[in-house]
C-alpha cells in the first residue's frame, strides 16, 4: 500500500544541485514569492487551490488521508 513520503523529496529534472538544501530552498522561495503582494484572504484562496491541485496530482487516497491526519496533529 502506498504511504506518505516524509523524507526530503524535492528535486528538479535537468538541474544539478550541489548542496542538499538547495532544491527544498528553491521550492520554499517559489512558494513565498507566489504569495508576495496578496492580501491575507487572497493567500488563503491560493493555498486552498494549491492543496487541491497537489492532492489531485497525488491521487492515492491512502496517502492523502495520512497527510490530512498529520496536518491536523496538535491543532
Amino acid at each position: 500500500m502506498a504511504t506518505l513520503n516524509t523524507e526530503s523529496n524535492f528535486k528538479e529534472v535537468g538541474k544539478r544541485h550541489f548542496r542538499a538544501f538547495s532544491p527544498g530552498d528553491d521550492f520554499y522561495a517559489a512558494l513565498i514569492d507566489t504569495h508576495r503582494g496578496l492580501t491575507d484572504e487572497q493567500s488563503a484562496v491560493l493555498n486552498a487551490r494549491l492543496i487541491l491541485l497537489l492532492a489531485n496530482h497525488i491521487g492515492e487516497l491512502a496517502v492523502l488521508r495520512e497527510a490530512l491526519s498529520i496536518a491536523r496533529e496538535d491543532l
Binding site: 513520503n5 516524509t6 526530503s8 538544501f21 527544498g24 530552498d25 520554499y28 513565498i32 504569495h35
Partner: peptide, 26 residues
C-alpha cells in the same frame, strides 16, 4: 508577510517528527 510566517511556523511544527521539514528549516 502573514502568509510567510504561517508557512515558516508550519515547517517548524513539522520539523521535529518529519525529515523533509527539517531540511526546510533555514
Amino acid at each position: 508577510s502573514p502568509a510567510s510566517l504561517t508557512f515558516r511556523n508550519a515547517v517548524l511544527t513539522l520539523a521535529r517528527k518529519y525529515p523533509f521539514a527539517r531540511a526546510l528549516v533555514n
